[in-house]
């Protein structure tokens, strides 16, 4: 294939990916409520969004839900991955199968199954239902990432530590966790993003008392396009871009 053709093809795909985002950011600075034509530059919409306390409540909810859910998932997932790697126990293959099934089931099915469980268990839909749901869909990702890394560790290291008198707890905190740290960190980042962005599962298990950001955006978007929503989404794009670029730069630097 010709070089120029390759270049143009890639450019077209990137245009497809980025034009909607760029347009949205452009609109967020547009000084008009209804028209899509350019009416001059303004930052009023940003002021509106920054002063909307309802919105910030949803942001805050999403944030602490993501922190709580990903730290719990990290704890359970890391312990599970270490056990799966080091020990033989009954039901090991069942556990593996279950983790696999949870990753592969469509989100909507998991959402509904959890909704049924919570309703039958009379758990009110709110923070706790979201928390249980988010931890559940995050755990398998932590296990997969950490397990892959754990399998690469030489088991003789554990034997050596035990011979030198380390007990299981010491072994876990002072040998295993430091060696798995890169995998734990990257699964933390993934869990946070998954939890912060999830819509399908959250849609079924969230209640009116505890509103989170994706659900709020979804219900606003159903009413149509508005400058305020343009601005909110642009802000989210900016935030994501900064975080992703920073973490990319960070990992690249570490490699070098």
């Amino acid at each position: 294939m010709k070089r120029s053709f390759k270049f143009i093809y890639m450019l077209l795909i990137y245009c497809f990916l980025y034009i909607p985002i760029a347009a949205l950011i452009g609109y967020s600075f547009n000084n008009t409520e209804y028209s899509m034509l350019w009416q001059g530059f303004t930052t009023n919409w940003y002021r509106d969004v920054l002063h909307d306390s309802n919105l910030w409540v949803a942001v805050w909810h999403s944030f602490y839900l993501a922190i709580a859910a990903s730290s719990t998932a990290l704890l359970i997932g890391t312990l599970a991955a270490v056990s799966l790697c080091r020990y033989e126990f009954r039901g090991k293959s069942l556990l593996r199968g279950l983790l696999f099934v949870i990753i592969l089931t469509p989100d909507i099915v998991l959402g509904i199954a959890l909704l049924i469980l919570f309703s039958l268990g009379s758990l009110a839909l709110g923070f706790w239902s979201l928390y249980f749901a988010h931890v559940t869909f995050c755990i398998p990702f932590v296990v997969v990432i950490v397990l892959t890394r754990a399998k690469g560790i030489d088991p003789n290291i554990f034997a050596a530590a035990s011979d030198l008198g380390a007990n299981e707890i010491q072994l876990f905190w002072r040998i295993i966790v430091p060696m798995l740290l890169p995998a734990i960190l990257s699964s933390a980042l993934l869990c946070f993003a998954l939890s912060f962005d999830d819509i399908v599962i959250s849609y079924f298990v969230s209640g009116p008392g505890f509103e989170i950001l994706p659900i709020k955006i979804f219900s606003m978007a159903r009413l149509g396009v508005s400058p305020k929503l343009n601005t909110l989404c642009s802000l989210l794009f900016f935030m994501t871009f900064i975080i992703v670029c920073f973490s990319h730069w960070f990992t690249q630097r570490r490699k070098a």
């Binding site: 609109y27 962005d197 950001l213 994706p214 978007a221 989210l236």
Partner: peptide, 13 residues
């Protein structure tokens, strides 16, 4: 890395 709702909204506008 952003929410798919946000991306779908961008497509909508």
């Amino acid at each position: 890395w952003t929410s798919s709702v946000v991306r779908s909204y961008a497509m909508m506008s």
